[in-house]
């Protein structure tokens, strides 16, 4: 490192320059997480004494039927919603990858749901699912799919389907966007070669395009899984976690405890969610190959 010594030994100056960012990271990320972690060891309910109970909040969570219900719902929702999002998103990406007139316009249209804030789109879906004048019941009744109006948000299965539609509608465009980028990275020569090798259009997709999309689909899968794991806003607006807690996600469950003044238990639930998210994020970083020397 001769000749560049001054620069290399300036480690202290380097910290000085990144200090604003470090400050931000500490204030808004590290400190809240550490704080939550710390709180999770206490029995800390508003107007009641704060008491160190170490892991009791965690042991309670594992036997708490409410937490189990929320955790089970969240996992079930991930298991159903994420594959659906990937399938629909990929299908849209394949359509948008074709030589269509006004392609730019179609692409923009598909992305609109992703651009609308969740709380706003959830309100729109709330109108759609309205028992008396909602579009969902209008279609269900007039198409003959249902004998009478369906109480969408009043039953567990109805709520699940309602949330599923709202969530997939909003997030499939995100999948479409990254899969489209992946599709455009597939060399056209390879597809032409497969066609000359007498593959049908479907075989070209299944045997050439899809395997080459695998890394992109893996990224989409992990992104969507992590994101769905902490699903909150759509549920909060549309069903409020009901009926009877059947659509309460882990995030919403933790939120309810915070809102009720039980900071200790809310923190413990949040930490459990954080740990699962962190594990998945770590997996994502590993699979995507970040930080590896090229």
């Amino acid at each position: 490192m001769a000749g560049r010594g001054e620069v290399v030994t300036g480690g202290r100056e380097a910290y000085f320059f990144i200090a604003p960012l470090l400050l931000f990271v500490f204030a808004f990320i590290v400190f809240p997480i550490a704080g939550t972690f710390f709180s999770s060891f206490f029995s800390d309910v508003t107007f009641m004494g704060k008491k160190f109970i170490f892991l009791s909040n965690y042991t309670h969570a594992f036997s708490d039927p409410g937490f189990r219900q929320a955790f089970g719902f969240t996992l079930t929702f991930i298991a159903v919603a994420v594959p659906l999002e990937l399938f629909i998103g990929t299908a849209f990406a394949v359509i948008l990858d074709q030589e269509l007139p006004l392609r730019g316009l179609w692409r923009a249209c598909v992305l609109i749901p992703w651009a609308i804030p969740s709380a706003v789109s959830a309100r729109i879906w709330q109108l759609i699912y309205n028992y008396g004048y909602g579009l969902a019941n209008f279609i269900a009744v007039h198409s003959g799919l249902a004998d009478g109006p369906v109480n969408w948000t009043g039953t567990a299965s109805g709520s699940f389907i309602a949330l599923l539609a709202a969530d997939v509608w909003k997030t499939a465009p995100f999948v479409a966007l990254i899969v489209l980028a992946g599709l455009q990275a597939v060399p056209s020569d390879l597809k032409a070669q497969a066609r000359v090798d007498r593959a049908t259009s479907f075989q070209v997709f299944r045997l050439v395009t899809l395997p080459l999309l695998k890394p992109v689909l893996t990224v989409a899968l992990l992104f969507r899984t992590i994101d769905t794991l902490r699903i909150f806003d759509v549920i909060y607006v549309l069903t409020g976690g009901g009926p009877g807690g059947s659509t309460t996600s882990v995030s919403l469950y933790a939120y309810n405890y915070f809102a009720g003044g039980d900071f200790g238990y809310g923190s413990a639930v949040s930490m459990l969610l954080f740990m699962v998210s962190f594990g998945l994020s770590w997996l994502y970083v590993r699979l995507a190959g970040f930080g590896e020397a090229a």
Binding site: P187, A192, A199, L207, P211, L212
Partner: peptide, 20 residues
């Protein structure tokens, strides 16, 4: 008649080998 109906093989400049 598309490529499926012709018994034609092709070698591309890029070789177009299936990387996977």
């Amino acid at each position: 008649t598309g490529p499926r109906g012709r018994n034609v093989a092709m070698v591309f400049q890029s070789y177009a080998l299936y990387p996977h």
